[in-house]
């Protein structure tokens, strides 16, 4: 399923907000690849830069430095029509399903919006395509196509968002916390739908979420972010089974399972993430890390491979 030529290749991406003493590196130099047909999960706590990474890839926020190559073409410096063109090959689904649809437009027009922008498909063909897309996401276009977006619930709005994002047949779909606002039973429907459509349309996904369980359920590989840096990246099952970075381990330890027999976590990561305005020297996690030494304060750990495809940025990776 996966080939060895990455679809998306990100190198040393940084995003800095503000300037001078108020400069915050929301994303502080991250590199990763996404291969065709795979799903890369991106997890981390709020403020770790995962959403900013997604937005920087879509150039909703401007990357400060680094490169983003989609299919071998650097989209970092593109502007105007070339940028709009690049965006049609990458699409994004947002966290708030209600807010991501214009409440005053009919849903068939919302789904057709990308087609209308590009005038790629017109007339009857356009209407058929829209109907087909709505059918694919489980909404009957004949009955509901003419309704306004504000008449739908969160789960249904997210279905419509998915239909819209697929209209241009993108290669890469960025899902930013797309199920976190939904109820559990609806969340499962949307995750299954996403999986089905991924196979049908041959999509590659970047799935950004804070929920470790959701990410594991959808991802082939998972990257863990902390304070703007990727601390660990690897195959999902591997990473969850034997986390090598102390932060990954702490995250997994704090996650709650819907199972009364799961161990109650007495040992919980203490404190809170430091301010990104003034990140710690060396390893950014060292202030909360139980294994931190002087080396961690002096030298920033570089990502290194500890198993095939499993990289960790830690001086003292945990051994399984």
């Amino acid at each position: 399923m996966t080939s060895h030529v990455p679809l998306l290749s990100v190198r040393d991406l940084t995003v800095v907000f503000g300037s001078g003493s108020h400069a915050v590196s929301a994303v502080a130099g991250i590199s990763f690849d996404i291969f065709p047909g795979e799903t890369l999960g991106l997890v981390g706590e709020s403020g770790c830069g995962k959403s900013t990474t997604g937005k920087a890839l879509m150039k909703i926020v401007a990357p400060t430095s680094g490169s983003i190559e989609l299919d071998g073409i650097d989209v970092t410096r593109q502007k105007g029509r070339a940028l709009r063109n690049a965006r049609s090959r990458m699409q994004m689904i947002f966290q708030d399903p209600i807010s991501s649809l214009n409440p005053r437009r009919r849903i068939k027009d919302i789904v057709a919006e990308p087609l209308d922008c590009w005038k790629s498909v017109v007339g009857v063909e356009r209407d058929d395509l829209v109907a087909d897309l709505l059918n694919k996401v489980g909404i009957d276009p004949a009955i509901y196509g003419n309704r306004y977006a504000r008449q739908f619930s969160g789960g249904q709005c997210q279905r419509i968002s998915i239909a819209r994002s697929l209209a241009m047949r993108p290669k890469l779909l960025i899902c930013d916390e797309m199920v976190s606002a939904l109820d559990v039973s609806v969340q499962a429907q949307i995750l299954n739908l996403l999986q089905d459509l991924k196979e049908e349309y041959g999509l590659t996904l970047l799935f950004i979420a804070h929920d470790l369980a959701v990410v594991k359920n959808v991802s082939d590989r998972v990257a863990v972010m902390y304070l703007g840096k990727i601390c660990e990246i690897g195959p999902a099952d591997n990473l969850y089974h034997s986390p090598a970075h102390p932060y990954t381990k702490a995250l997994l330890g704090a996650a709650l399972e819907a199972d009364p027999d799961s161990p109650v976590h007495g040992e919980v990561l203490q404190g809170e993430p430091p301010s990104p305005l003034d990140p710690p020297s060396g390893c950014r996690f060292r202030t909360r890390c139980p294994y931190a030494t002087e080396l961690c304060a002096n030298e920033e750990p570089q990502p290194r491979e500890i198993a095939p495809g499993h990289q960790v940025a830690c001086h003292f990776p945990l051994v399984p």
Binding site: R84, S88, S99, N102, A167
Partner: peptide, 21 residues
């Protein structure tokens, strides 16, 4: 709101966003 960002992402021009969204 997100739908304006979404329109941008789909390649809508600024004029289109102003008038339609």
């Amino acid at each position: 709101r997100d739908f304006v960002t979404a329109a941008k992402v789909q390649g809508a021009s600024s004029l289109r966003i102003l008038l339609r969204e």
